[in-house]
Design a protein around this nucleic acid. Structure first.
Lengths: 225, 225
DNA sequence: ACCTGAACACCGTTCAAGT
DNA sequence: ACCTGAACACCGTTCAAGT
């Protein structure tokens, strides 16, 4: 009869903050698909169940990781005196953060009413106020900007995940999509065909800002009526 | 020794189209969480493996279901002579479809470069052309509108899923969110606090259109420069 | 060609047992 | 209080065997 030999306990104690940082690393390295609690516990040299002492569930952990990234991105934007430029800055800061951590986009869109989206709402809202948008229109303007940012983030996240799975880099992806589009039925997809070539060389970041500018432009001209 | 008694085969044969329709029903009734292949096969009175004869995998089936809903929504929009009004119509048709089938929002945002999003891109693109937007700005305008629609759809889907899980109806949800927001730290969240009351009575559909109008307004004024 | 259903690998979560 | 690791319920997918 062999007695069960107990493994030694971990040297450092776990903490919620430590779990969040380890999750960010794991998500960055392995993507959403690689983010499993067993991979995380292996990385931390602990048992799968230990994690549950510090967090509620996997979703809680993902949202916390998302919040950490979004919070840092937003806090690193220093506000100048031009509210429109500030909004553009916040949006670009977020774009870059979501670009560096593609999983954040889907986490953001999947955790409604949680802190991360609220941070964005608040920061943009403050600038919209400074822009002099009337009280009744503030919510519409902020909500449009937020949803647009979430849409781009979510879509980029999905694109990134797809590219990772297929092992494509961005150029391959653009080339493939562009060639698919240019071979679509001319009767049914005239527009998509017509921009297929343009699509191959487009810049996501530039397109993103021009979307922000469209919304800001529309908010401005609506305010003037 | 009992011989294995073989169950009789299905009366009607399975088909991809049938699987798609059954999936839409199941998704509508049980949400994304309830959409499992075993639930689907039980509903169809077949074995779990049979499904794989007609589809590639679960994702393929989800995208096909999404495409069916989006396709119908878009095809039921008749185009008039005013391109801006047509875009507003397409967008509202999609909004209503995503509202009726909340799972479509997340399916749409998670299947990049697939048919469903392309359908939207094409329809909106045709109208943007008719609007007389210059060739260089067409992609930016369409992409902004598409991403905005995807963002709203994704967020509404997540909200719906949350509400379903917690068993809240919309009024409860709005009331709860509004009261949480109004209790936020006044130093950190002045804007969010200031619109908490407004949020409780806001109309998602109206806000959605005003976002579309902001973008269209911005596209228009950019074109005039 | 198409269907059946057991089997496989994997995953989030729980929990009695340890320290 | 916190950690361990086996156990549980469940899920997508595969596949040999049937018709």
């Amino acid at each position: 009869m062999t007695r069960r030999i107990s493994t030694p306990r971990r040297e450092e104690r776990l903490s919620r903050a430590g779990l969040v940082e380890a999750s960010i690393q794991l998500l960055d390295e392995s993507g959403e698909g690689g983010f499993t609690l067993s991979a995380l516990s292996k990385r931390l040299g602990t048992g799968a169940g230990a994690i549950y002492w510090h967090i509620e569930n996997k979703d809680d952990l993902l949202t916390a990781a998302c919040d950490a990234v979004v919070g840092r991105a937003i806090d690193s934007c220093v506000a100048g005196k031009n509210p429109s430029a500030n909004i553009r800055n916040i949006a670009l800061g977020l774009f870059d953060a979501l670009d560096a951590h593609p999983w954040v986009g889907s986490a953001l869109i999947n955790s409604p009413g949680q802190l991360p989206a609220l941070r964005i709402l608040e920061r943009i809202g403050q600038q919209i106020r400074l822009l002099g948008v009337s009280k009744r229109r503030q919510w519409g303007a902020v909500s449009a900007l937020l949803h647009y940012i979430l849409g781009v983030g979510g879509q980029n996240a999905a694109n990134g995940q797809l590219a990772r799975k297929r092992g494509l880099d961005r150029d391959d992806f653009l080339k493939k999509t562009s060639s698919t589009w240019s071979q679509l039925d001319p009767q049914k997809y005239p527009f998509t065909r017509s921009i297929a070539a343009q699509f191959e060389t487009h810049d996501d970041r530039e397109d993103f800002v021009s979307g922000i500018d469209f919304i800001l432009g529309g908010v401005g001209s609506a305010a003037r009526m």
